[in-house]
Design a protein around this nucleic acid. Structure first.
Length: 380
DNA sequence: GAGACGTGGGT
DNA sequence: TACCCAAGTCT
């Protein structure tokens, strides 16, 4: 039998279909990449709870939690979640506030809202079964191409490629990508698809992610433990530290926010539920707003509470100042005790308002920055 | 297609 | 302290 590669024409890198790649992978080498990676995985793969199960629901949950989130962070949430919502049906029937409470602290809360909605779609349109094809999976809220590939391969061993942060970094180094991964998504997807082992798609994808997470790390990759050390452009040319290339980024804007802990005569505190979409959607918070130029914190708080809640308050003592960094901006929350004076609270800029006793705060999902305010209240 | 969207950990 | 980065998706 002829080796088909002996007849294939060698294409110079400069003329190949991958102009952004320093060292294209010859199809002849695919088997060698697959073989060496799977052997490495057999010896070095991580044992993770979502790899101990065959339940597509549990695997779906893990894939969503793992979006932009490290394994160590996900572990406790995953265990609690599976006990709290053991089936698609239990999730679909749950109250969204309960779902958000279970997600509290994990971030990117749209994931929880999408999970909840997708569970209802799965019950309504897919007979309660997590779909098998990437096409059906991608039709569900919160599932994009990578997560669809992750679920299809992990839950059903389907030959579906993935392209998460780990795979982007590994492939960028292996082929010597000349541009940041975000500029070469099409080529990276093709690479991931070409490399995928059609005989062992589940193990291959999991292995690729483990390699990126434990060996081919962002900083100081441990190349002497890598099964691809001799097949990797970055390793061969000592460019591990320079790959993948990164984009420039502008400094984050910084906002100052005046925040009110408003007490009524009954010893209750006023909290509001943020609009369902957007930043921290559906979570509860202490009301407040942006401090305008030349404005005092006290004036800001009184103004914001009047505008957004429709009540008059007396701004009192400073409680705490919280600095918090989001992905795209930084905030400083300057929190003051306030006393309710008059007016009927209205949810003008939020979805709902409630008076609650301090010991009831833990029943509501709050963002991280507000947790520090709650802790300060308890300490006082 | 560029920006919105959280939080924790590492350096 | 400040910045980078992490199993991405949505608009």
């Amino acid at each position: 039998m002829l080796n088909p590669c002996q007849n294939s024409q060698k294409i110079p890198a400069s003329q190949s279909s991958y102009p952004c790649v320093s060292r294209p992978i010859d199809p002849c080498e695919h088997q060698e990449y697959r073989r060496t990676l799977l052997i490495w995985y057999g010896r070095n793969g991580r044992t993770l709870p979502w790899r101990q199960t065959q339940d597509p629901y549990a695997i779906w949950i893990s894939e969503i939690m793992l979006q932009q989130t490290q394994v160590k962070t996900v572990l406790p949430y995953y265990q609690t979640w599976i006990r709290r919502f053991p089936t698609v049906q239990s999730l679909a029937q749950a109250n969204l506030q309960t779902v958000l409470k279970a997600w509290e602290g994990l971030g990117y809360y749209a994931r929880a809202r999408h999970l909840h909605r997708a569970a209802q779609v799965i019950c309504d349109r897919f007979q309660g079964q997590v779909p098998l094809t990437t096409s059906d999976l991608e039709s569900l809220p919160g599932i994009g191409r990578t997560t669809a590939g992750g679920i299809a391969s992990a839950a059903y061993n389907q030959p579906a490629a993935i392209l998460d942060g780990n795979v982007k970094r590994v492939l960028a180094r292996v082929v010597g990508l000349k541009v940041p991964p975000s500029r070469a998504l099409k080529d990276l997807w093709s690479l991931s698809e070409d490399l995928l082992d059609p005989e062992h798609p589940r193990d291959f994808n999991q292995a690729l992610m483990d390699l990126g997470a434990t060996v081919c790390t962002p900083r100081r990759p441990d190349c002497h433990r890598c099964p691809w050390v001799e097949l990797c452009f970055a390793s061969m040319h000592q460019q591990q530290a320079d790959l993948p290339m990164t984009e420039e980024r502008t400094p984050l804007p910084h906002k100052h926010i005046g925040v009110a802990v408003i007490w009524n005569p009954q010893g209750q505190i006023l909290i509001d539920r943020r609009p369902a979409a957007g930043l921290l959607g559906g979570l509860w918070e202490f009301p407040g707003g942006k401090i305008e130029a030349q404005e005092s914190v006290e004036a800001c708080i009184a103004r914001e509470i009047q505008e957004e809640i429709g009540i008059e308050v007396a701004v009192g003592d400073h409680l705490i100042t919280v600095d918090h960094a989001y992905t795209h901006f930084k905030v400083r929350l300057i929190v003051h005790h306030c006393t309710y004076l008059k007016g009927d609270p209205q949810p003008v800029a939020c979805d709902e308002i409630r008076w609650v006793f301090p010991d009831q705060l833990e029943d509501y999902p709050f963002p991280k920055a507000n947790q520090q305010i709650i802790a300060a209240l308890k300490a006082a």
